[in-house]
Design a protein around this nucleic acid. Structure first.
Lengths: 270, 270
DNA sequence: CGGGCCGTTGACGCAACTCAATCTGCGTGG
DNA sequence: CCACGCAGATTGAGTTGCGTCAACGGCCCG
């Protein structure tokens, strides 16, 4: 129970993906992944072959905004994986008593839909958060190709294991962290993801509503709102609606790890 | 958000594995899996080949009791997966602030260690709960073989997806269920697992301590204890230490879905 | 203008945590 | 043999974090 190096709950993915090379300019267009994630595994083959394989694998889709478009629905037949190109996507698990759990937010470069592989039916419903684009990967074709491209097969294994790790950490956060820390966690994850995409983190906007945050973190909407206000009061960032300014990564991280010594008084000292 | 059939949070695995055929007598010895799970994927090959492959893949291990033996430790190099043969195993995630989260209990037939695939280091520590035996599967060999046995590759994908589903459901339970329901959930899962192994569920003993249960469910030990007492008072089962008697599956399930109408009084009417 | 949905804030109550005491079984050593 | 310590489990009493309920403002859209 000791001796083992501890683990940073927030930084799940850093090691998992090739570092964003500076050659990728398009900030929001992190279709990088689609041109990095899978293809990186195809190094062995020739460039032309690789292009061909990619073409045969990947379709590009636009998920349109406001309409809150579904990419797939729980319990419908599974046959394709998705990679976020821009925007964000949430996946929702609806349980037998009717309440819904957001099992994950997926940002540019993230792969989702893996939960359908086991039963050949999606285990969740996925919905685009506002405007988003994804690319679709035909799974049976991917599976077939991966049998003769071991590096690709290995890559799929890794992506799946990454999802498992992510969920494990999430469980740890839900079980052992306070509401404050959970919110800090979510913001940190998003900010760090943006940074990995070489996007500005001094001013950005989060793609999900308070309700989404609440459902994902297992909190009440009001609690999320209160906490955002409080964290703002602590000057960890400024937030107006979904716009976030001047986020202090280091202090936010500290706040996530353990609530700070304690402030004189939460909100009364006037 | 609607229209999609809801999902039974408890019965994760039923569909995932071949039904326990009545030909498997050895109740506790569910090394069935090791002779079912992987091999089922090797149908295409001849029997002798299959035997050979299996031999080359699988080593059998005993994990001894009280000593609380570690099978692997977080952050140490990953190279083998494990399947529980008898007893039970827990996996623990230690986070940077030092608190530990039990990310899963694994029972006979279950595969664990998958979380190491991504980074090539185990993401968790695994510990045998009391006496247990497992078999070890060399992952790189498994990976190699699976490239020319597509059914095996597919099987691995499915096992990983199953783990993802399992964790998703766990998250849903942690987020949206009361302490009572969480405890009911854990008991249900275990009882149903036993039933799938054709083992008696009228009288059995759970392999984990109250502390373990608490850590896994995100509760305080005292809460777990109180709830077990309460559920017992509701006659959902009898429990003495780790021995469970006369468990009423149906009512427990009902209790998990939604707390019953409400009993006259929790514990006072003497 | 009215009725949504989203977000914020306050007042209040409860479920679950914390602290603490007790009881057990178990191993260890006098 | 009993005394002792220790870890697991149970139970009670007191505290609190967060959910619930309710009211309110901003915004969009019909």
């Amino acid at each position: 129970m000791n001796g083992a190096p501890h683990i940073d709950l927030v930084n799940v993915d850093t090691a998992a993906l090739p570092a964003p090379s500076s050659t990728h300019q398009a900030p929001c267009e992190a279709c990088e992944l689609q041109t990095q994630c899978l293809p990186a595994s195809l190094n062995a083959t020739s460039d032309s072959q690789r292009q061909h394989l990619l073409r045969s694998l990947v379709r590009q889709l636009q998920a349109h905004p406001l309409s809150q478009q579904y990419l797939f629905r729980q319990s419908t037949p599974f046959n394709t994986l998705y990679i976020v190109r821009s925007g964000a996507v949430k996946t929702i698990l609806l349980d037998s008593s009717g309440c819904e759990q957001i099992t994950g937010f997926y940002y540019p470069g993230d792969l989702f839909g893996l939960d359908g592989i086991n039963t050949h039916h999606y285990a969740t419903t996925s919905v685009a958060l506002g405007q988003a684009s994804v690319c679709a990967v035909d799974f049976s074709r991917l599976e077939r190709i991966s049998t003769f491209v071991p590096a690709l097969q290995h890559h799929i294994f890794r992506m799946m294991a990454r999802e498992i790790e992510r969920n494990q950490r999430m469980m740890a956060v839900l079980n052992h962290k306070s509401a404050d820390q959970r919110v800090a966690f979510l913001l940190l994850r998003y900010a760090l993801h943006l940074r990995r995409l070489n996007q500005p983190i001094q001013q950005f906007s989060i793609p999900m509503s308070r309700r989404d945050i609440a459902s994902h973190l297992g909190l009440a909407v009001e609690t999320v709102s209160r906490i955002l206000s409080r964290l703002q009061r602590l000057a960890l960032f400024r937030i107006e609606g979904r716009q976030v300014y001047a986020l202090d990564l280091a202090r936010l991280q500290a706040h996530f790890e353990a609530v700070e010594p304690r402030l004189p008084s939460p909100h009364s000292p006037q």
